[in-house]
């Protein structure tokens, strides 16, 4: 089990537990986290599960692969910390992960 905290643009946060093997997107959907839409269902084909990784966790979540980087072109207000939640696998290493949900998915 890993704890993941989702922080909304208004500062409110929700901490959920996720089984290793799930993706961060799936953990968000299972817990009805607002602002993570995942229109394509996790195929890395829509960019509507865009999140910002907390600075402290960037090394552990790693860099986006080429396909994810391409898909991030379709997200809004992309930052250096941007990732697609469907491309981050939950591991025990990520216990405590903090991500921010963007103001808008599109």
């Amino acid at each position: 089990m890993a704890k993941i905290t989702f922080i909304q643009p208004d500062g409110t946060s929700q901490t959920v537990t996720a089984d290793p093997g799930l993706t961060v997107m799936e953990a968000a959907k299972l817990n009805a986290i607002a602002g993570v839409e995942a229109e394509c269902g996790g195929a890395c084909a829509c960019a509507t599960c865009h999140v910002y990784i907390d600075e402290a966790w960037r090394a552990k979540t790693g860099k986006p692969a080429t396909m994810e980087e391409d898909m991030l072109d379709f997200a809004f207000d992309v930052q250096d910390t941007s990732r697609l939640a469907c491309q981050i696998k939950v591991t025990a290493d990520l216990d405590g992960l903090v991500v921010r949900v963007p103001a808008k998915q599109f």
Partner: peptide
């Protein structure tokens, strides 16, 4: 005075 945004498709 003319902008063309190409951000893919949605449903």
């Amino acid at each position: 005075n003319a902008m063309l945004p190409f951000f893919g498709l949605t449903m």
